[in-house]
Simulated assay, not measured.
Amino acid sequence: MIATLFSVLTFLAVIGSGLAAGLFFIFSNTIMASFARLPAAQGIATMQQINLTIINPAFMAVFMGMVVLALVLGGKALLGWSEAGAGWLIAGAVAYVVGCFLVTIIFNVPLNDQLAAVDPSSAEGAALWATYLSDWLPWNHVRTVASMISLGAFAMAFARTA
């Protein structure tokens, strides 16, 4: 029963980290490049709306739920180090918590907060936008890669425990 529960949790971590990887990938690959081609005021206003809209129950359930899943699965793996897939669970947990969650909180959210405070049509906004694009995107690339690593690691753990 416990093994089945952890298999289900690992499967959910595969799905959750895959959703995170897809979200961050589309921002890195397409959305931010599209915004950079817009006039600053339009790019700022659109990103401000995205930053407001993304804080919703579905996104938060995946984003924060993955933190909980990663900590539970990582803790289980530490306690059962000799069990099949334990190393993969730890790798997935560390990749998600550090590379996705902490990077978001430490780097991307403060940049989003700065952007939220400017008038899109102001000179200050235009200056901030140029810096925002160059500072926000590399951290999003980190989140993209980290969530892809998390996805792969959780998938490997699932394959070894299912």
Rank of each mutant, 00 (worst) to 15 (best):
A3S: 13
T4G: 09
T4S: 14
F6P: 05
V8E: 06
V8L: 15
F11W: 11
G18S: 09
L19I: 15
L19M: 15
G22Q: 09
L23P: 06
F24G: 01
F25H: 14
F25V: 03
N29F: 11
T30W: 10
T30E: 11
T30H: 12
M32K: 07
M32V: 12
S34R: 13
A36I: 11
L38R: 07
L38F: 12
L38S: 11
A40E: 10
A41H: 13
Q42R: 14
I44H: 10
Q48T: 06
Q49N: 15
I50L: 14
I54E: 10
I55A: 13
P57N: 08
P57W: 09
A58W: 13
F59I: 02
V62A: 12
M64T: 11
M64G: 10
M66S: 11
L71F: 09
L71D: 08
V72C: 05
K76W: 15
A77S: 06
G80F: 08
W81V: 05
S82F: 03
A86Q: 02
L89E: 01
A91K: 04
V94W: 00
A95S: 15
A95P: 13
V97N: 09
V97Q: 07
I105R: 10
N108G: 10
L111C: 09
D113C: 03
D113I: 10
A117I: 03
V118D: 01
P120K: 08
S122F: 04
S122N: 03
E124W: 01
A127Q: 15
A127C: 05
A127T: 14
L128Y: 05
W129R: 06
W129M: 04
W129D: 04
A130V: 13
T131P: 03
T131M: 11
Y132W: 11
L133V: 13
L133E: 10
D135H: 12
L137R: 12
P138D: 06
P138V: 04
R143Y: 06
V145A: 13
V145R: 00
A146P: 04
M148R: 00
L151P: 01
L151E: 01
G152N: 04
A153F: 07
A153R: 05
A155C: 07
A155N: 06
M156H: 06
A159I: 05
